[in-house]
Amino acid sequence: MTQDIFKSGLAREITDGPAFDAALAQPGEVIQTGEAVDVGSISKAPRRSRDSGPTPAQKARVADLEGRLERLDTTQATAIGDIEAEVAALQKRRSVLEGEYAAARRDLVARLKAARARR
Rank of each mutant, 00 (worst) to 15 (best):
S49D: 14
R94H: 04
E35I: 11
R50N: 14
A85D: 15
Q32M: 14
R12P: 08
L90V: 01
G9K: 05
V30Y: 01
D64G: 09
E84G: 10
A104E: 13
E98I: 12
S95N: 15
T55R: 04
K113H: 14
D38Y: 02
I42N: 00
A36D: 10
V37M: 13
R71P: 05
P27Q: 02
L90T: 00
L10K: 10
A79D: 06
D107G: 07
A110H: 00
K92C: 00
E84W: 08
D73I: 07
A103L: 07
K7N: 06
G40D: 09
T15E: 08
R106Q: 14
T55P: 12
A57S: 08
D4F: 06
A79G: 01
I31W: 05
I80S: 01
R105C: 03
L10M: 10
S95G: 15
A117H: 06
S43W: 01
D64S: 12
Y101R: 08
I5T: 05
V62L: 15
Q32H: 13
A110Y: 02
A57L: 09
L108Q: 15
F20N: 01
L10P: 06
K59T: 04
A22V: 11
Y101A: 09
P54A: 05
R105A: 05
A104S: 15
A36H: 11
E84I: 08
I31Q: 02
I83P: 01
V37D: 14
F6G: 07
Y101T: 07
I31H: 03
L112W: 03
Q3Y: 09
K92I: 03
K7I: 07
A63G: 04
L10Q: 13
Q3C: 09
T33H: 04
G9Q: 00
P27V: 06
S41M: 05
V96K: 11
P46D: 11
V96A: 09
V87T: 05
R47P: 04
A57T: 08
R61M: 06
A89S: 01
D107R: 14
V87Y: 03
A103R: 10
E35V: 14
T2H: 14
R118S: 11
A19L: 07
K59W: 03
A115S: 02
A102M: 06
R118D: 04
A114G: 13
L108I: 01
R71S: 11
V109F: 14
I83D: 09
P18G: 03
G53A: 10
P27A: 01
R50D: 15
A25C: 03
D107Q: 09
S95A: 15
R12Y: 13
K59N: 08
E98Y: 13
D16M: 03
L65F: 07
I83Y: 12
F6V: 14
I31K: 07
G17Y: 12
A85S: 15
L72V: 00
S41Y: 04
D73Y: 03
R61N: 06
L108N: 11
T75S: 15
E84D: 12
T2V: 14
S41R: 05
T15F: 10
T75M: 13
A88M: 02
E84T: 11
V62A: 15
G40S: 11
E98G: 06
R71Q: 10
Y101C: 00
P18N: 03
L24T: 08
D82Y: 08
G9F: 09
L10N: 10
G81S: 12
R68W: 06
R111V: 00
R50F: 14
L90G: 00
G53L: 09
K7R: 11
